Amino acid sequence: MKTASGLGFEEFVGDHGYLSWLGVEFDEVAEGRVVMRVPYDEKLMNPETEDSGGSVHGGIAATLVDTSSAFALRTTFDDPSDVSLSTTDLDVKYLRPATSDLVAEAEVVRAGGSMGVTDVTVKSEYEGELVDVAVGATSYRLFR
């Protein structure tokens, strides 16, 4: 089984200001699949109102859709630590508020010679249960 540290993914995140600031972690890395987590942190919350109850900003889920997709696609390269790719399309649909850690499960749908496509589910705790809070898809230009 592949590991995030063995592929240089953790070093990449550590060197990336935004991803490092978010505290991105890897739960699983396999061929064509990555599970990433952003731990709950007050700094990521929307301002709380009487009706909202407080929720993690939707941009964090969108970042996880994009980032987990990129790392999942990296696993399809001969050398995942030395990859060049670029997001060409990002689609996120929000299902309910996220109120705890966010966990993204990214699956490669296709990784061709120059284009890659992924599907992603983002989960979080909501009203005491781990549920889907967002779904997304990406396409990437792959530079092989």
Rank of each mutant, 00 (worst) to 15 (best):
E28Y: 13
E28F: 04
A30M: 14
A30Y: 14
E31Q: 06
R33K: 15
R33A: 12
V35P: 05
V35N: 04
M36N: 08
R37A: 07
R37Q: 09
R37G: 10
V38C: 10
Y40E: 10
D41Q: 12
D41Y: 10
K43D: 09
L44T: 01
L44S: 07
M45E: 05
M45K: 11
M45G: 01
M45Y: 04
M45V: 01
N46D: 07
N46A: 09
P47H: 04
E48Q: 11
E50W: 14
E50S: 11
E50D: 12
E50M: 13
D51H: 14
S52F: 01
S52V: 00
G53S: 06
G53L: 08
G53R: 07
G53C: 09
G54P: 04
G54S: 04
S55G: 08
I60Y: 09
I60K: 05
A61C: 13
A61T: 09
A61I: 12
A61Q: 13
A62I: 07
A62W: 05
T63W: 09
V65A: 09
D66N: 10
D66A: 07
D66K: 03
S69P: 02
S69K: 00
S69N: 01
S69D: 02
S69R: 00
A70F: 03
A70D: 05
A70T: 07
F71D: 13
F71M: 11
A72P: 06
R74H: 04
T76M: 15
T76Q: 14
T76W: 11
D78F: 02
D79N: 15
P80R: 03
P80H: 02
P80I: 09
D82N: 15
D82H: 07
D82P: 01
V83C: 15
V83F: 04
S84P: 15
S84V: 15
S84A: 15
